[in-house]
Design a binder for these strands. Structure first.
Lengths: 223, 223
DNA sequence: TTTAAATTTAAAGATTTTTTAAGAATTGAT
DNA sequence: ATCAATTCTTAAAAAATCTTTAAATTTAAA
């Protein structure tokens, strides 16, 4: 899971949640610091969006508790605009602080900046086409956010195809890429893997929307 | 040298410079992006404070030039308060953006937060994933707060895996990391240690929740 | 329309890789 | 020097993946 949003205001929480999830991040939304602490035990998050004014444990105290166990970037949100609040937040271990009301696109760009700094430029680690996402680092593939069980060879083939979205990929080139030039595996095996890939990826393997065959040449992913 | 300040307004530049140098950081002050680029060739800075409105090359263009060669945190300063400027700055590679006029103590706390994130403050002593905690300094591991008896090699393996949560760790890489490139221990021993680790960490070693095997490649911790 | 070539499909066998258990070798503490 | 803990090896069993084969289908061209 990417982001945990801790915000007690129902409406604002939902707004942020919708925007974030529509921006290709996964998120959970909780209404109190106590719930957040529980969630953190069970799930792994890459970033925290933390409201300051919360019922029960407030944002500052929650943060110092969280910081004992977790080192992920934390972005605080608050209506309190005085300097001391900002400074206190960051001294407590927040990475950044955004004043309410804020523009949601600005929030998103702050999130991106924090993720970039904490985890590196790994947007290029993920290949996306429509609702298919291929994560090179994790070697996982999802469709509509649900993960697909994919084998090694299948992954290698899909990776190469998705690195060339819209371009016709020559069968021999694809084969060499996946098996290596000197492999003595039969070329026909490639067809078989494509069949299985379609089985997993396509809604209707007979009418491929993603992996299209280009007669006498090879395959083309998408477009 | 810690910080390079790029600010053409003499008075403001001096103010920032004084405050920063009085706060135990070393700094250089330049008045243009061109000068900054020259300085960056010669000196090594840990952070950049970059004004947007500059004579000659402006802050945005300077930043995209800088980002080709440098990855240090960059904090932009500008009187332009519109969202698009902020977003553009961060898309271009800035880590944060502060509106002028700003409070200098707030600026300082932003600087601290950025340095902390980029270079670490407390040597990431504890790695946490869900209910598993690994204390690097103490070489201990707990699950749900209860300590697990773990041997040296097991710890080394787990540490490396947990430093790469969610990413597939190549078996050879993992081996080299733990045993060293020139070790003549058999590769297959790694499998055995993983088996023991699972015995200790997993609820059900047959259905690993933490240490997953990625066929043909290696292992992946979590996600 | 017919034909040959290319691709799809399904199934089964082969191969590779991982898991597992047991024991041998090594190390460090007493 | 002895003992216990740890590290390492080995080999069989199990699991997952890879590969081949051949028949069925589709396509493009004669």
């Amino acid at each position: 899971m990417d982001i945990l949003i801790i915000e007690d205001n129902e409406e604002l929480g939902q707004l942020i949640y919708d925007f974030i999830t529509n921006s290709d991040y996964s998120a959970d939304l909780v209404k109190s610091a106590e719930d957040a602490l529980k969630k953190l035990e069970k799930e792994n998050y890459r970033l925290l969006l933390l409201d300051v004014m919360l019922p029960g444990l407030d944002g500052f105290n929650a943060l110092s508790k969280i910081r004992k166990d977790h080192n992920m970037p934390v972005l605080m949100m608050s209506a309190r605009t005085d300097d001391d609040s900002k400074i206190l937040g960051m001294e407590t271990g927040a990475d950044d602080y955004i004043e309410k009301p804020f523009s949601v696109p600005v929030l998103l760009s702050k999130i991106k900046a924090l993720l970039r700094r904490a985890y590196g430029e790994n947007e290029n680690d993920v290949l996306t086409y429509k609702n298919i996402r291929l994560n090179v680092g994790a070697r996982t593939v999802t469709k509509d956010g649900k993960s697909l069980e994919i084998t090694g060879k299948e992954f290698d083939i899909l990776e190469y195809l998705m690195k060339n979205v819209g371009k016709v990929v020559d069968k021999n080139k694809l084969f060499d890429e996946v098996w290596g030039f000197y492999s003595d595996t039969e070329m026909s095996s490639l067809n078989v893997y494509v069949r299985w890939l379609r089985e997993k990826i396509e809604d209707d393997p007979k009418e491929p929307e993603y992996i299209k065959t280009v007669w006498r040449v090879g395959y083309k992913f998408g477009e």
